[in-house]
Amino acid sequence: MADATTEPLLTPTTDDDGAPFWTYAARGELRIQACTACGELRFPPRPCCPHCQSFASDWRRMSGRGRIWSYVFPHPPLLPAYAARAPYNAIIVELAEAPRIRLVGNLVATPDGELDSVAPERLRIGAKVQVVFVDVGGTVVPRWLLERP
């Protein structure tokens, strides 16, 4: 039987507030929760707007463009399922339309590229990226491609 030490973490933990994010991702859409009272975008999703305290929200479609705000290459000790994939990157992407919204993911060379498909020296803070959606073990997750490879 597989466990977290032998299998990659594939299934996101969802709640009622975050479930729409994954539903839209499965459709190939990057959407961010927005307050319908004041218009502010928020991520991670939550029931109440931190700006005006309204509980009214909807999901706005984003272009999927952004820039690398930060990145890291995890070092051992790693979960065994990830050790064979190292070195791989984990990036934080600042969305073009919403600079206060930042998403975590991986930079890959092609939409179906492996986690280690981009050489470490190619990552740069500020590099422009575009979201792609990939089915990983039955869950569609956002990953990122350089806009100019």
Rank of each mutant, 00 (worst) to 15 (best):
V72D: 14
L30H: 01
G138F: 01
E114H: 15
V141M: 08
N106F: 06
P20H: 06
D112H: 14
P80Y: 01
R148T: 13
R60C: 00
P77Y: 04
T13Q: 05
L41N: 03
V129Y: 07
A86E: 06
R60I: 01
V140H: 08
D116F: 12
A56N: 07
R143P: 02
E29T: 00
T6E: 01
E97W: 08
P45D: 07
V93F: 12
E40Q: 14
P8W: 04
L79M: 09
R67K: 13
I91E: 07
D135A: 04
T23Y: 11
A34H: 08
P47V: 07
D16H: 01
A84V: 11
L9V: 15
S63L: 05
F21G: 01
L10T: 05
D135I: 06
E7A: 11
L107R: 07
E7P: 02
Y24W: 12
D116Y: 08
P142S: 04
A98N: 08
P120W: 10
P120M: 15
D135F: 03
I101M: 07
I125M: 06
L10S: 04
I101H: 03
D135T: 04
V141G: 03
D16K: 03
V131N: 02
D112N: 12
P44W: 13
G126E: 12
R61M: 02
G105F: 10
C38L: 03
A90H: 14
E147K: 09
G138Y: 02
F133C: 05
T139A: 14
T139M: 10
Y71E: 12
A81Y: 00
L146E: 09
G137M: 02
V118T: 05
L78R: 05
T14N: 00
L115F: 12
A19E: 06
M62F: 07
R61L: 06
I92S: 09
G66E: 09
P77G: 03
N89W: 10
L103Q: 10
P99T: 14
A56P: 04
R42F: 04
L95F: 01
A109G: 05
S57K: 05
W69I: 13
P76N: 10
I91D: 05
H75C: 13
R42N: 03
E7D: 03
E94D: 09
L115P: 10
R100Q: 15
C49K: 00
I32F: 02
G64T: 08
T5K: 06
V132S: 00
D58H: 13
S54I: 03
D15A: 02
Q130A: 11
L79E: 03
A25C: 06
E121K: 14
P50V: 11
S63Q: 06
